[in-house]
Simulated scan of single mutants.
Amino acid sequence: MNPSTESPGSDGPRLGRPRDGALTDRVLSGAQDVVIEQGPDRLSADALAAVTGVSRAAIYRRWPDTAALLAEIVTRCRPVPAIPDTGSLRGDLVGLLEPWTRALDRDERLVATVLGRARHSPALRAGLEAAVVHPLDAAVATAVDRHVARGHEVPAAGRVLLGRLLLALWWERYVSEPAATTDTVVAEMVDRALLPVVRST
């Protein structure tokens, strides 16, 4: 996808023209399919036009290049589940790690596919931060704040370490694409790796 070599033609960019939401969603969904099934290097205006039936001109109006399109796809992903309110920090963290009990879903597969490419793309790194880093930060803040509200103390260092460990677990999941595990193993991860750092002083 390279506007410098493929001209949009007479149906070029129109300043101030609003996006067609349904068409945009169709392109983004099609782009996600292409990336997951064929890899990010196969993403192009021609590939998207073939998959979605949307003209190359319409694609160029929305995204100047592949990096911008990839970043938007990733930003729209929701690979981090909402953290449940189970009444305990342990239960909340076990619920947060529910993805480990199943194979990677569609959004996770996209993140796993583009992760290495983000090293060379600031836009894609920003998309991954929006999709993974910020939701995990929010989940940690929610879980710890609930724990404190129940009358427990959490050292500042413990809050930071919990966030770092969870982020490391998430990246490791996408890099290694492990098989689904059991609820028992997830609970052991929480008991042996996560809760001790929250309780440290």
Rank of each mutant, 00 (worst) to 15 (best):
N2W: 08
S4D: 10
S7D: 13
G9M: 09
S10Y: 13
D11I: 08
D11E: 13
L15C: 08
T24I: 01
T24D: 15
D25L: 09
G30H: 03
A31Y: 06
Q38E: 08
Q38T: 08
Q38H: 02
P40N: 08
R42F: 07
V51H: 00
G53D: 02
G53T: 00
R56I: 00
R56A: 03
A58R: 05
R62Y: 07
R62D: 12
P64W: 10
D65E: 11
L70W: 06
A71I: 02
I73W: 02
T75W: 01
P81K: 01
I83L: 06
L89H: 04
R90P: 05
R90C: 12
G91F: 05
D92G: 04
D92R: 10
D92N: 14
V94F: 11
G95P: 14
L96C: 07
E98G: 13
W100F: 15
T101I: 08
D105F: 02
L110E: 03
V111H: 01
A112C: 05
T113Q: 07
V114Y: 01
G116I: 05
A118C: 11
R119V: 14
S121W: 03
P122S: 10
P122A: 11
P122W: 11
P122K: 12
A123G: 03
L128H: 00
A130C: 14
A130I: 10
A131R: 06
V133H: 11
V133Q: 09
V133T: 15
D137L: 11
T142F: 04
G158A: 02
V160E: 10
G163V: 07
L165R: 12
L167H: 05
L169C: 04
L169V: 05
W171D: 12
E172R: 05
R173E: 01
R173I: 00
V175N: 13
P178L: 04
A180G: 15
A180S: 13
T182V: 08
V185S: 14
R192H: 09
L194Y: 02
L195G: 02
S200V: 05
T201P: 08
